[in-house]
Amino acid sequence: MTNKVKNNKSVIEVTDLYKTFDTKKVLEGVSMNLYRGETMSILGRSGQGKSVMIKCIVRLITPDSGYIEVLEQDILKLKDDELNQIRTRVGYLFQEGALYDSMTLAENLLFPLKRNKPGLSESEKQELVETTLRSVDLLDDIEKMPSELSGGMRKRAGLARTLVLQPEIILYDEPTTGLDPYTARDINELIVRIQEIYNVSSMVVTHDMKCAKRVSDRIVILHNGNFIARGTFEELENHEDEIVRNYFI
């Protein structure tokens, strides 16, 4: 167990989560905690329910049963307004960035700011946008449309849009999928840098071992609807269970 896990309280707590689509059981009694300041990766093959799991955490998908606590709030019992409040404290990076394609990069960042930080003046908002874009090395592209950005730039832009609200938790959904090895490495470094600068708690859903190794304090493996192992990269790499070890080959 890492120091971050030992010393901190959990910001996300999931207990006995179940989710079925038609007849396919995706999550079967999943339980886990994410501790303040740590980066935890969820490893698993495609279709194992990793993305479903983090979508349940922000209630984009409603689970069949279970308990989810995010920042000390029972997320499944919140009213819409309360849920929106919590969501502004939890950033979510989508696989393809999910940038609003009718807006420039600057407008993409201003959009959540205008709605969730009405107290900020226009100049403060602009400054925050520029600072955030600088932190992901996209300040020179501030007036570009999403269609003008490369895959890696889109992910960084998506991350900037998440960071602009200064969340306490960031959920990354396959941050390196579809990227070349060099860009994937840059994104991994960025995740580490963001954690250091903003001291956020992060949950990274991935099947990229290099990504998991570089960014994680702790890794859990989701297999057939449940977590079959937890630990550091090194611990899991030498795990007694062959199924777990196979993930690291």
Partner: peptide, 18 residues
């Protein structure tokens, strides 16, 4: 439809906009 399949609607929802 295009916003839905590219997760833009979900992105809007998780950033606190209905």
């Amino acid at each position: 439809g295009s916003m839905r399949v590219t997760d833009q609607i979900d992105a809007m929802e998780v950033s606190g906009t209905n």
